[in-house]
């Protein structure tokens, strides 16, 4: 028996170490072990306290068990046995669990705290994110599949969903919240480190659930203000010859009936707003880069890249047309 046990145990340890190491992949862009915001840090500390506490408890109980059954197996006095059962079985867990409750309950407040003057409305679609920044005057700047936040300021996220339930989660920045059709849920983030993090839909929402991600870009407050100013502007179509032809392909193929490019004839609301799509970090809700070949790949193979998505694959377009479209869209910065 023992001969088989050892290697199994070693293998388990190696596997566990591997799991821990894997979390370091991608510099923790999508990891709870890389807390980069106040809320994620609270959750990280909470998990640490719980895990270490559970480990200590496990060692204590296991040690006691080994002590009374192996090291010192003798009959106990009635008083000691009653003390162990009442003290170890009732009083200790009640006090410990009570203490953990008192410690952890107030932690639930931070992620629900009110914003400090900045609110973002996020609506989950199948399978992408409609993102609207609310300006102080109440008007909204529409974007998609990317969340930009200022560092050091609490931003309120007002969450909603279209058709089915989704869940919003940026592990490096904070907790998770359900997104429910017809019902507003709320979460707030206080990012503490500038950087590009990754969010992911965390509630099964259909065929392409796993392909529903987004980039969360945390910026210095000045950079953020400048970015938001630019994002609020209408599109400035790129002027190169190829891009101009791309704009014609865009109009000819009817892209504007689903997508909006503010300042042009394209006013569709079904798909993501493309006014500044060239300035984004990713395409297809976090599944592709944002270079010209990615645009071509996405437009020509939408349905194989994202099964059951509403947008058809435009694989009938010639390579020239696709390249022109990519030049146009990539130029919408």
């Amino acid at each position: 028996m023992t001969r088989f046990k050892r290697p199994t145990r070693t293998r388990t340890l190696v596997a566990l170490a591997g799991v821990l190491l894997m979390s370091a992949c991608g510099e923790g862009r999508q990891s709870v072990l890389n807390p980069s915001g106040r809320d994620a840090l609270l959750l990280y500390d909470l998990a640490l306290v719980m895990f270490v506490g559970a480990l200590v408890l496990w060692l204590l109980v296991g040690g006691l068990f080994v002590y009374v059954t192996r090291i010192n197996p003798r009959e106990m006095s009635r008083g000691l046995a009653e003390g162990l059962i009442i003290g170890g079985g009732v009083l200790f867990p009640v006090v410990l669990l009570g203490g953990l409750l008192v410690y952890s309950l107030p932690l639930m407040q931070a992620p629900r705290e009110a914003d400090e003057g900045m609110r973002v409305h996020i609506t989950a679609e199948q399978w992408w994110w409609r993102v609207e920044y609310e300006l102080p005057d109440g008007s909204r700047v529409t974007s998609a599949n990317e969340l930009r936040l200022p560092v050091g300021r609490r931003t309120g996220l007002i969450l909603n969903a279209h058709r089915v339930i989704h869940a919003f989660w940026v592990p490096a920045l904070g907790g998770k919240a359900d997104m429910i059709p017809g019902r507003e849920t709320y979460l707030s983030f206080l990012p503490e480190e500038a950087g590009t993090y990754r969010g992911q839909c965390a509630e099964f929402c259909g065929a392409s659930h796993a392909l529903m991600a987004f980039e969360a870009v945390v910026m210095e407050p000045d950079d953020f203000a400048a970015w938001l100013d630019a994002e609020a502007q209408e599109a400035t179509p790129p002027q190169s010859e190829e891009a101009t032809r791309g704009a014609q392909v865009f109009a000819r193929e009817g892209c504007g009936s689903c997508h909006t490019v503010r300042g042009t004839q394209a006013l569709g609301k079904v798909g993501p707003d493309l006014t500044h799509v060239g300035g984004r970090v990713s395409l297809g809700a976090g599944i592709l880069g944002a270079e010209a070949p990615d645009f071509v790949n996405w437009i020509a193979h939408t349905e194989s890249l994202k099964p059951e998505v509403a947008m058809p694959s435009y694989d009938h377009l010639s390579p020239d047309d696709l390249a022109a479209l990519a030049a146009y869209l990539g130029g919408l910065e």
Binding site: L101, L105, P106, M108, Q109
Partner: peptide, 8 residues
């Protein structure tokens, strides 16, 4: 406990 510890 939640009513005691969470005032919102």
């Amino acid at each position: 406990l939640p009513a005691l510890l969470i005032g919102t």
